[in-house]
C-alpha cells in the first residue's frame, strides 16, 4: 500500500466519518519497502493540490520520515518548487509501500490489517450496519 493512498482514506465505520479523529488512520508495525518509480517533477506538482498536508505529516512521522516541510510547498512565479523537496515527496508518496502492518482508527480503535501490500477494510457485521439498525435489535 502506497503512502499517498493513506491520504485518501479514513475509518470505514460510518459513525467515525464525521469525527476528525478518523483521519488519518495510524500505522502500527508497518513493514516498508521501496520500489523505484520514474520521477516526474510536474506530476508531483499536480498531486500537491490533492494532499491534506497536516495528515501527511502525521503519517510520515509515524513511518520515520521526518524531513517534510512544516507547510505545504507552493510554487510561485518567482520561486518554483525546490527539486529536492519534490524528489523527497516522490520517494515518500509513490516509492514507499507498506507491505505488512496495521492501520488504526483513533476514534473507534478499529484495526485494519495490511497483508501482502493489500489493506482490508471489511468490517464485522455489527460495525457495518447503520447505528439505527443495531439499536432496533
Amino acid at each position: 500500500m502506497k503512502i499517498l493512498t493513506t491520504n485518501y482514506i479514513s475509518c470505514a465505520v460510518k459513525a467515525c466519518k464525521s469525527t476528525s479523529l478518523s483521519f488519518p488512520l495510524h500505522f502500527q508495525d508497518a513493514v516498508l519497502v521501496q520500489e523505484e518509480v520514474d520521477f516526474k517533477p510536474e506530476f508531483i506538482t499536480n498531486i500537491l493540490p490533492r494532499i491534506e498536508w497536516e495528515a501527511l505529516k502525521i503519517t510520515a512521522v509515524e513511518l520515520g520520515f521526518t524531513t517534510l516541510p512544516a507547510q505545504k510547498p507552493e510554487a510561485t512565479e518567482e520561486a518554483p518548487l525546490d527539486p529536492q523537496v519534490l524528489k523527497d515527496l516522490h520517494t515518500l508518496l509513490l516509492e514507499t509501500q507498506v507491505t505488512e502492518g496495521k492501520l488504526v482508527c483513533a476514534n473507534c480503535k478499529h484495526v485494519y490489517n495490511i497483508h501482502q501490500g493489500i489493506a482490508n477494510f471489511l468490517l464485522p457485521n455489527h460495525l457495518a450496519l447503520p447505528l439505527i439498525m443495531i439499536t432496533n435489535f
Partner: peptide, 13 residues
C-alpha cells in the same frame, strides 16, 4: 496507487 479490500466506497474520504 492501490487496490483495497472493502465494501463499496466505505474507506474513502
Amino acid at each position: 496507487l492501490d487496490s483495497l479490500t472493502a465494501n463499496l466506497v466505505s474507506p474513502l474520504r
